[in-house]
Design a protein around this nucleic acid. Structure first.
Lengths: 213, 213
DNA sequence: ACATGACACCCGACCGTTCGGTAGGTTGAT
DNA sequence: ATCAACCTACCGAACGGTCGGGTGTCATGT
C-alpha cells in the first residue's frame, strides 16, 4: 500500500521509457497496448497517463530521448584528433555496430516507418536528429581523409550507404530471427563486422585502379 | 446490388492480396484492421472472411505468395550461362534493387520482425523461403566467379552482406521518408545503385592487395 | 511541535470506440 | 438446385483514454 519506489525519486519516468522502448521496438507501435505496458512495468494504466498525456507522446519521447547519446558519441570520435583517419573510421564503424546491435536505437527505423504516415513529425525528427547527423559525421570523416590524402577519392555518399547499410540490415535480420536456435550461426556478428570493416578499409585506402570499362 | 466484378472471375483474391500486402507493409500488422482493408478494397469485412479464414492466414498468404516470383527470377540469372561472371553479378544486383525498391517484398522484413514473436512460423518461412535462397544465390554466384578465377578471393559471407545491406536499408530509408518533399534528393536511387555496383565490382575484381597492417 | 494545504504519484472502475470474427440471408452464374 | 460470392447486422473482447479518489511527502504558518 505504500509508495513503490521511495528511494529512487522520479526514476519511474525512465523506467517507463525503457520498458516502452523495448515494447515498441519488438511489437510495433500499434501492437503495443498501454494496458500491457502498464502490466509489464507493474503499475496501473492510469499511472502511465500521469507521466505521459498520450500514447503518441510516450512514443515520441522514447524515440527522441533514445538517440541523443548515440549521436554525440559518434561525433566525439570524429573530432578526436589523437588518431589517424583509418583508425577513426574503424572506431566509428565499431561504435555504429555497437549502437545498432546492442541498443534499441538501431531497431527503431522499422518502427518509424510504421508510424510515418500517422505521425509525420516523428519521421522528420528521427531523420534530422539521428540519421542525418549519423550519416553526416561519417561522410565528414571520409571527406577529411580524402582531403588529407589518407583515403582514395571515393564517392562519400556511396561509402556512407556501404558503411551503414549492412549494419542496419544485420540488426533487422537478427531481430527477425530472434527466435531461431541457430541465429548466431546464421548471423555471426563478430565475423561479419570484422569482414565489413576490412572491406571498407580496402576501398578507402586502395591506390587508384584503372577504370574497368 | 449486382456482383461487383462480373468480368474478372476470381481475381478478387489477388485483389485482396495486393491491397492487404500494401496495407501491412505500410502500416504494420497490428496497425492494419480488417475493416479498413475491406473499405479500401470496396467490399464488406465479412466478404474478406469468405476468402481468408483469419487475419493471420491472410497475412501469411501475403508473405509467402509475395516472394516466390522474386526468388525464381534471381535464380534464373545465376544459371544464365550466356554472360560473364561480372555481368551476372551486375544483373543480379540490378534485380535485387528492383525487387526491394519497386515491389512490396523488399519492405516485408520489418513486418516479419514485428510479428516474429506472435507468429513464429512466418519468420521461419520467410527466412528459408526468401532470404536464405536470395543470399545463397548471390553467394553461389560469387563462389562460381572465384572458382573460375574471375573474382578475387573475397569472403562470400562478407560480400553477401555488403551487397544486400545497402539495398534493404535504402528501401527502409525511403519508406521512412516517404512523406518528405526532398526524399529523392536525400536518397537518389539511381546514383546510389550505380555507385554501389561499381564499388562491389571493384572489390570482386581487384588484384590482390598487400595486407595493410 | 504541529496542523495545513499543495502536490506528485498511483489506483480501481469506467467511458465510447474499434477490434477480429460470426450468423444468416441474398444474389447470380452454372 | 446448387454453390461461390457477397451482403447486413451483430458479438465479446480489447483498445486509448478519463474520472474521482486515495496516499505519502514536504514546505509553510503558527
Amino acid at each position: 500500500m505504500t509508495k513503490n519506489d521511495p528511494a529512487q525519486g522520479s526514476s519511474r519516468r525512465a523506467d517507463i521509457l525503457s520498458h516502452a522502448t523495448e515494447a515498441f521496438v519488438s511489437r510495433g507501435y500499434a501492437g503495443t497496448s498501454m494496458a500491457d505496458l502498464a502490466r509489464a512495468i507493474g503499475i496501473q494504466k492510469a499511472s502511465l497517463y500521469h507521466h505521459f498525456p498520450s500514447k503518441e507522446t510516450l512514443f515520441v519521447a522514447c524515440v527522441t530521448e533514445g538517440y541523443e547519446g548515440a549521436v554525440r558519441r559518434l561525433e566525439v570520435i570524429r573530432t578526436d584528433g589523437a588518431t589517424t583517419d583509418s583508425e577513426r573510421i574503424r572506431a566509428a564503424m565499431e561504435e555504429i555496430y555497437r549502437i545498432n546491435l546492442t541498443t534499441p536505437v538501431g531497431r527503431m527505423a522499422p518502427l518509424i516507418a510504421e508510424v510515418a504516415a500517422t505521425i509525420p513529425e516523428i519521421a522528420q525528427a528521427f531523420h534530422s536528429g539521428f540519421i542525418a547527423r549519423h550519416y553526416a559525421t561519417v561522410t565528414g570523416m571520409i571527406e577529411d581523409g580524402i582531403t588529407r590524402g589518407s583515403f582514395a577519392r571515393v564517392d562519400p555518399l556511396g561509402m556512407q550507404h556501404l558503411i551503414f547499410g549492412p549494419v542496419i540490415t544485420l540488426a533487422l535480420s537478427r531481430e527477425m530471427t530472434a527466435s531461431f536456435p541457430d541465429r548466431d550461426a546464421l548471423y555471426p556478428v563478430d565475423r561479419i563486422r570484422e569482414t565489413h570493416i576490412d572491406l571498407i578499409m580496402r576501398l578507402l585506402t586502395e591506390r587508384e585502379l584503372s577504370d574497368g570499362s
